[in-house]
Amino acid sequence: MRDRLIFASQLGFTLLVAAFLVVPVVLSITAGVTVNYFRGIQSGVTLQWVVQVWNLYAGEIGLSFLIAFATLAVTLVVGVPAAYGLHVKGGRLSRVIEEIITLPLAIPGLAIALALLLTYGGFGGFRQSWLFILAGHVVFTMPFMVRSVMAVFASVDIKTLDEGAASLGASPWTRFCNVIVPNAMPGILAGSLMVVTLSLGEFNLTWMLHTPLTKTLPVGLADSYASMRLEVASAYTLIFFIMIVPLLVAMQMFAEKGETK
């Protein structure tokens, strides 16, 4: 009897927490498809707000994807070899490098953005282009890629595999392509999902770095929250959810697969 009571109260509490997280999302989704949120859902269901957001903000959304995939490309090309290098090299220098690239996780995005602005603000062409935002996103997401790949290296004894391939005559570059990368694939995939998700949703840095011509999806969101009617802001949020939730689901599935393995 007492156990039942404890169970029920814990379940109730957990449901309450879940409600706190889920109810606002449901509100936002309903608001995005309601003709008039103030009058409630009785006023009718419509896609007009979604269409309006698309017309207004398609550019921002497109730029966000461009930046997200460019960030992914850079973190892949730079981060995967670096993870290998850090793992194989080991020693104090590697630890210091790892520590430094992880710092952007602790330092607030605002500070990094200020630092970038104060350093490169004067380089007009760079400052005005989306590459400026890309630089910020790369700094911010790099540790996720590097660590995710290094975590795999730590579990598959990549050093011996590397030596095995070397003993069979493969050059360092061949080994990297034939043995290292294929065996690091789970980490590369997990890191990639993380990088794209984070880049798509990144606001703290991007808000400081953007220009009127380089607005991203979250910057547009903030814009719409400040200046648009609630239905439009909600519709925009809805679009964001639709883009980000599949990535989150994929990430969760990945994490579970990794655990059961």
Binding site: V77, P81, G85, L103, L116, L118, V139, M142
Partner: peptide, 24 residues
């Protein structure tokens, strides 16, 4: 080869993180 693997990361980090932080 290992140095070549590490080089891009070092360059990117130095240019877009360490240098700006020093400037800050």
């Amino acid at each position: 080869f290992i140095w070549i693997c590490l080089l891009p990361l070092v360059v990117v980090t130095a240019a877009f993180f360490l240098l700006p932080m020093a400037q800050l």
